[in-house]
Design a protein around this nucleic acid. Sequence first.
DNA 1: ATGCAGTCCTGTAAGC
DNA 2: TGCTTACAGGACTGCA
Length: 318
Amino acid sequence: MPELPEVETVARDLQPLILGKSITEVWWSGKKMRLPWTNSWDRALEGLIFTKVSRRAKWLVLHLAERGAGWDWTGGSALIAHLGMTGQLTFVRRGKEYELPKDHVHLRFGLVSSGKKANGLNEGLRRDFEAGELRFRDIRRFGGMAYAKDSAEVDLFFAKHRLGPEPWDCPLDGWLGALSGTKRLIKAVLLDQSVISGVGNIYADESLHAAGIHPCRMASSFNEAEGAKLLEMADSVMRKAIENRGSTIRDYVGGENLNGGHQNSLLIYGREGEACFRCGILVKRFVVAGRSSHFCPVCQKAPKDAGAKPVRQRRGPA
DNA sequence: ATGCAGTCCTGTAAGC
DNA sequence: TGCTTACAGGACTGCA
């Protein structure tokens, strides 16, 4: 499930692979995605050159320039992608297409080297100028891609989605204000992209565990130290996950179709019934804020009025 | 205005 | 063995 660290890994992988390449053709499966593709974008994209790959929260931004535009130019048009739950955005070298799964592929962008010498383009990043295709694959189609024809449209797109700051950009006073000003459980607040962006279910559980806070705590019950601690843990948990190239629970792959490595470092998510690494007590799982939530009943003390719905224990093999 | 439940979507695996 | 059903969850919609 791609969250900020997974999307950051895709961005870092893709940048050197597609930088300086131009789009020769666009193919769409015709299947409806969460972010609906529009046929008329195909013609507009042909001939455009990738100049930069960036990320905002869980969104990927593939910046494009018109042929002849300055190489250091990063404004202008862009392809914006969200990976949803099972989205994969990878660069596939020509001739290697059939080494990768071809089911559930919804968008393919044919790419060739622009043939231009780089003026100001970081030579170190251009390690590969082979032709190939940028491929969007998404089993559940909760993700999708959109084209924004200029920087104003890119800005409008992100304004519409009302993304809050990422953990490392989140001012403490704003965060504490958001906690005190809501009647929601802390788990729901962590997952609210307009309050703090980039955190999904996995890293919300990891952050709460690292901070020793139960997911059913009312956000408004936090004192300053608790709020600061949680923000600090969200920051460090995400940074470590980025270092490990994200977590592959099932379908996530980076921009080079490689699995992440952080799934082996998760301390609480997916560990129901296993011993807490800190205290040895068995990890529990409840549905909180409509999401499966993993926590340690000792390290993360439950509030007296915890109102989570118990989840039926999954039986292992007989 | 606020918060919650329901919805989408398909592969996987539990359970009968 | 084979079928049915529950589950995974990001972001949005609709309702109370």
